[in-house]
Design a protein around this nucleic acid. Structure first.
Length: 198
DNA sequence: CCATTAACTGGTC
DNA sequence: GACCAGTTAATGG
């Protein structure tokens, strides 16, 4: 979701800066805001009982988070942590609903956004259920690529570290590293230095 | 530069 | 594949 900044400000959106590794909200907090990223990156994560991190998603410029919780009264299911210096516009939930009333076009777009997220989420879950690490990586990259505009082969840059890919897929870094090499041999992906193109 | 972070390798279970 | 240990390469102040 990407809403015009002027409108966000008009309805009480405020700019907030976070430094690297700062917690924006924690799992279990009451959901009170809509967040839209102006610059930087944010990860949504949880930790399992062994303390192992699982990243649900990594969002960048012009992407939003916290929005699936705007229409229901639930607690955040994940933490949100900035990966680098990040600037967001934060808008209180009630103002957001008010804004939707005044801007039906945004409301419609919101529906489309949530639908698309659900759609790709189901694809993700399907691929993540696979035992084959190649399918897991490919599923993740298909998901990431869905946000991307270009349509050429192997031109989508995966802006993630091997560790982040591991935390997103539930694999170990070493497995990711070895699987990436297999996929290069398969011609599924291409490397430019360490950067992956899919 | 040096220090930190990321990528890689090899071996055990 | 996970998990552990150790090495090398890249990054950034």
């Amino acid at each position: 979701m990407n809403i015009d900044q002027a409108i966000l400000h008009e309805f009480g959106g405020e700019n907030i800066r976070y430094i690297r590794k700062e917690t924006i909200f924690k799992e279990g907090d009451h959901s009170l805001y809509y967040f839209q990223i102006l610059s930087g990156k944010v990860k949504l994560n949880t930790f399992n009982e062994n303390g192992k991190e699982f990243i649900q998603n990594i969002l960048g410029k012009n992407q939003s988070f916290g929005d699936p919780l705007l229409f229901i009264d639930r607690l955040y299911p994940t933490n949100a942590v900035s990966l680098e210096t990040t600037e967001v516009i934060r808008m209180p939930k009630n103002n957001f609903l008010l804004m939707l009333e005044k801007h039906p076009d945004i409301s419609l777009e919101m529906n489309a956004c949530l639908s698309q997220r659900l759609y790709y989420n189901s694809l993700m879950v399907r691929n993540m259920a696979s035992q084959d690490p190649i399918h897991r990586l490919q599923g993740l990259m298909d998901y990431l690529k869905s946000y991307y505009d270009g349509d050429c082969q192997q031109c989508f840059p995966v802006e993630l570290t091997r560790q982040q890919i591991a935390d997103l897929t539930g694999l170990r870094v070493e497995t990711v590293i070895r699987t990436v090499k297999k996929m290069v041999n398969n011609n599924t992906i291409k490397l430019d230095g360490r950067r992956i193109f899919y």
